[in-house]
Design a protein around this nucleic acid. Structure first.
Length: 494
RNA sequence: GGUCCCGUCGUCUAGUGGUCCAGGACGUCAGGUUCUCAUCCUGAAGAUCGCGGGUUCGACUCCCGCCGGGAUCACCA
């Protein structure tokens, strides 16, 4: 049994969005599960489409999610180089093998001529097959024209680890281009050479390549290469459930999610469970559980829709599962945007998720605050709006009391009286949560009011926020000076 | 249009001939937890299993047709 070697082979032409990284995750999972190797390879044979900075972006995305690769363009490995534009010699060598065995020939037509053939076929409502125009005596290939594969059409049946038993007729096999006239190989040729030379055992990629499988199978045979295990994953669909997810649908790339404060754990869990489950009712999986339980056979064959609500829920779950110190450490740094600058990338004036006003507060204070909001935090970018009142006195907002369904039925004078009572009691408190709770309960009796009334009143006075964590805990964190100062401000406004 | 793939609650899915008048999760709605928001708990609504034929004692599960959706038909990957 050969050691498992999987690869992720993106072309550096743009962002790595959630749909794209799923195949990377699957490949990584398989490699880790088998104790094999996960390889990163850049397929940059189309210089025109290359996007500046996308290599860095791709690498950063992978690493941020914890999908470490064992061999790759930047770290090398036993089969280096891992960038196709640096492997031209290999393609040249194998192309010569094909020429020598009569399985490749120079394309004598201009692209206009080929286009004419194509249009002619279309007019006759017949599928266009280049091989129907295969020249009888092709010129010797000198590199100035495309080099084509001389196919041997036949029906194919093959096993796809995800899609199951697959088949296609001979009409799907054609003479495709191996090497372009610019000297670079096509994907169709290059990836097969690379996978072979790099000893890749599992090819996992998007379903857009399924229809090319007969061509690849034909090439593998001509080259006498062993065919790796093949797996084609369905696309992740956009919110409308129709088109595949892409940047232009507003699909954010992976790093956008990270920057918004989504945890890698949640993203990995979410992406893995988009179209995969282990057959039980388990929804939350750690990275280790995924490595242990993942299998291509259980990957759904139909495309799954990207459901942001579910991601949000999952992220909240993972945030709650972290201990406070760990969670706090994660809120300290907003990862820098690597590679491509997103047009809508947010301002970079914040280096942490905490609001500006928090910078003069000690870490211990911020940790207490975080402890109070942990169970209501869905993603880190929400921290400022959830915590603002812990760091600054917000202006008195009359609407909070006048619009409160419990409080609006009382006269201001009455509310003022209760707040005065509260102030008097709180002045005597040591502001420990226990003492605060005790005094708050006494106040309930003294005023004869329900918590819904009294606590709402004090909560609004001390936070000026529409919602906040529970009263005693909030007061304890806020501290005596701040709490009393804010009560005075509220009193003055009533 | 040719070829290939797919089709279970709004969404992600469990389900491989009977235990399914279809189970779980997200979302939604209602109730509970000394106040708000959230968490947590409980409950509810929500799928004639795309449609129509077969096969079978019996089909979400097998077969055929249809419809719908997707992918692909480049000197892009």
């Amino acid at each position: 049994m050969k050691p498992v070697r999987t690869r992720f082979a993106p072309s550096p032409t743009g962002y790595l969005h959630v749909g794209g990284i799923r195949t990377a995750l699957f490949a990584w999972l398989l490699a880790r599960q088998a104790g094999g190797a996960f390889v990163l390879r850049f397929e940059d044979t189309d210089k025109k489409r290359e996007v500046e900075g996308s290599r860095e972006h791709l690498i950063k995305s992978l690493l941020t999610l914890g999908l470490e690769y064992d061999e790759g363009p930047d770290i090398g490995g036993p089969f280096a180089p891992y960038t196709q534009s640096e492997r031209l010699q290999s393609y040249q060598t194998w192309a010569q093998v094909l020429i020598d065995t009569g399985r490749a020939y120079a394309d004598p037509y201009t692209s206009e001529e080929v286009q004419a053939f194509r249009e002619q076929a279309q007019a006759e409502k017949k599928p266009f097959l280049y091989r129907n125009h295969r020249p009888e005596n092709p010129p010797k290939w000198d590199g100035s024209t495309p080099l084509r594969f001389k196919s041997e059409p036949k029906d194919y049946r093959w096993e796809d680890a995800i899609m199951g038993e697959s088949r296609a007729g001979a009409e799907a096999v054609d003479d495709f281009i191996l090497i372009k006239s610019d000297g670079f190989p096509t994907y169709n040729f290059a990836h097969i050479i690379d996978d072979h030379e790099m000893e890749i055992t599992h090819v996992i990629r998007g379903q857009e390549f399924i229809s090319s499988m007969p061509n690849y199978l034909n090439l593998y045979e001509a080259l006498e290469f062993e065919i790796p295990i093949l797996a084609h994953a369905p696309h992740v669909l956009g919110p409308d459930g129709k088109k595949k997810l892409g940047k232009r649908d507003g699909a954010k790339d992976v790093l956008d999610y990270i920057r918004d404060g989504y945890l890698p754990e949640a993203l990995v869990n979410f992406i893995a469970s988009l179209g995969w489950n282990d057959g039980t009712e388990q929804e939350i999986f750690t990275r280790e559980e995924l490595i242990e339980k993942f299998s291509l056979e259980r990957v759904q064959r139909s495309g799954a829709r990207f459901d942001e609500d579910r991601l949000l829920w999952m992220n909240g779950h993972w945030i709650r599962s972290l201990n406070l110190d760990e969670l706090y450490a994660r809120t300290l740094v907003i990862p820098a945007k690597a590679g491509i600058q997103s047009v809508d990338s947010s301002r970079s004036d914040h280096i942490s998720y905490w609001p500006k006003e928090s910078e003069n507060y000690p870490e211990s204070y911020k940790k207490q605050v975080l402890g109070l909001i942990q169970e209501r935090l869905k993603y880190f970018k929400e921290i400022p709006e959830l915590t603002a009142f812990f760091f600054e006195d917000l202006p008195v907002n009359r609407e909070l009391i006048d619009g409160n369904k419990q409080l609006k039925k009382f006269e201001h004078a009455e509310l003022k009286g209760w707040l005065e009572q509260a102030k008097a009691s709180l002045q005597e408190s040591d502001f420990s949560a226990a003492n605060l709770t005790e005094r708050l309960n006494e106040l309930l009796e003294a005023t004869g009011q329900k918590p819904g009334v009294l606590f709402s009143l004090i909560r609004i006075a001390t936070t000026q926020a529409p919602f906040s964590p529970s009263l005693a805990e909030t007061l304890a964190v806020l501290g005596k000076d701040t709490a009393l100062r804010r009560i005075d401000a509220q009193l003055a406004a009533l």
